[in-house]
Design a protein around this nucleic acid. Structure first.
Lengths: 210, 210
DNA sequence: GTCTATACTCTGATAGAC
DNA sequence: GTCTATCAGAGTATAGAC
């Protein structure tokens, strides 16, 4: 998700080369895993994409699974950041709209990360069970409580708060995960994300107006 | 999607056993492909699930790809039927709501089919390119025109019609494809689909009211 | 730190007996 | 129609030279 080795602090005892190669492998792994899922990905293709030999890959990561886990871990913070940013002190409708916008930007700017995540959840999320039931569920609970309070105060239309969150996830991620289908329907020359922005803005404004 | 060999017409020159085994293989293929995607699925697992030997599998289908293609083909009609059912003579809001309901029922009753489809589109839909750009795009164009007409007549809120369709797909399929995540957030003892029904009803009623 | 070579398993697919 | 046996290739991972 970034590549600045000069500013990024290095792990304990890691040389610049090691940092660089780890980054190369993660970048390659992201490309391959997001396309074919965990089981469909092969070390051969990751190695080729990273321009490293297969054994060299396994010098940096003990296994294929380790690469996958490292990617998912690194992804999660960035993925949950927009929801974390929902400010209980803010203006309700605008707060939710800002969340929708940030989430749509993630879909636009990091579609491979979105698909990596989608692939994992589709499988039943074997590498994410603890996170989904723990960190994620807790975060949604916390923010759902805020949304519920706003609804009680009449500052937001009454809706099941968790499903409101699901609807934001579904609508924004759809443009990354189903990109192929969206483009097939819209045809060439149209920009799905440019159209999705105003559409989702309008949708949630209508939905949430108290 | 069904199993009644007695009422279902048989293909040309197929015995009852052949029909039955083909159905067994497709059922097993659906289970495996929907979990791990095309590349992640193996003939071994499909064979085991169908309780047939691997060569016997390949007696009925010439290749792994053929099983996958047969599944996708069989799926598409059922998948597009709800949208086809959108009646230009009906009452606009109720027509769209009926479509949403039928689509959500598909997600609830055929989640594996939904995930099979999601897996394929996530990969870039190599086995569906013609269909997406052809049949699907044409159907959406046709129905988008109807929606646009209703909007012109002031019987439906003005929205980009294609994105309205995308939003229906995204919101209904989310409950099948991200079932793991939804359940992790909601916790045990809650029924995602029972809650999603009224929620989506409310959402689209608010969104579409002229 | 990186490579070649290789062990060993799994995978899709075929041959041929019954 | 179904099975056992088997193939060639791809898969993950390791050993060991440099």
């Amino acid at each position: 998700m970034d590549g600045q080795e000069t500013t990024e602090p290095r792990g304990p005892g890691r040389t610049r080369i090691q940092e660089r190669n780890r980054a190369l492998i993660l970048e390659a792994g992201l490309a391959v895993f997001s396309e074919t899922g965990f089981r469909g990905a092969t070390l051969d293709r990751i190695a080729k994409s990273a321009r490293l030999s297969k054994p060299n890959l396994l010098y940096y990561f003990p296994s294929k699974e380790a690469i996958h886990l490292a990617l998912l871990q690194g992804l999660l913070d960035a993925w949950l950041a927009p929801l974390r940013g929902l400010d209980p002190e803010g203006e309700p409708v605008e707060e939710v709209l800002a969340y929708v916008r940030r989430k749509l930007e993630l879909s636009r700017d990091f579609p491979r990360e979105s698909r990596l995540f989608a692939n994992e959840v589709l499988r039943g999320a074997p590498h994410l069970t603890e996170v989904l039931g723990g960190e994620l569920a807790a975060l949604v609970d916390e923010k759902a409580a805020i949304l519920g309070r706003w609804m009680d105060e009449g500052r937001l239309a009454r809706l099941p708060p968790e499903h409101l969150v699901f609807s934001i996830w579904a609508l924004t991620q759809h443009y990354a995960d189903f990109d192929t289908q969206v483009r097939a329907v819209l045809g060439d020359g149209r920009d799905p994300f440019a159209e999705a922005g105003p559409f989702l803005d309008l949708l949630f404004r209508r939905l949430l107006a108290p």
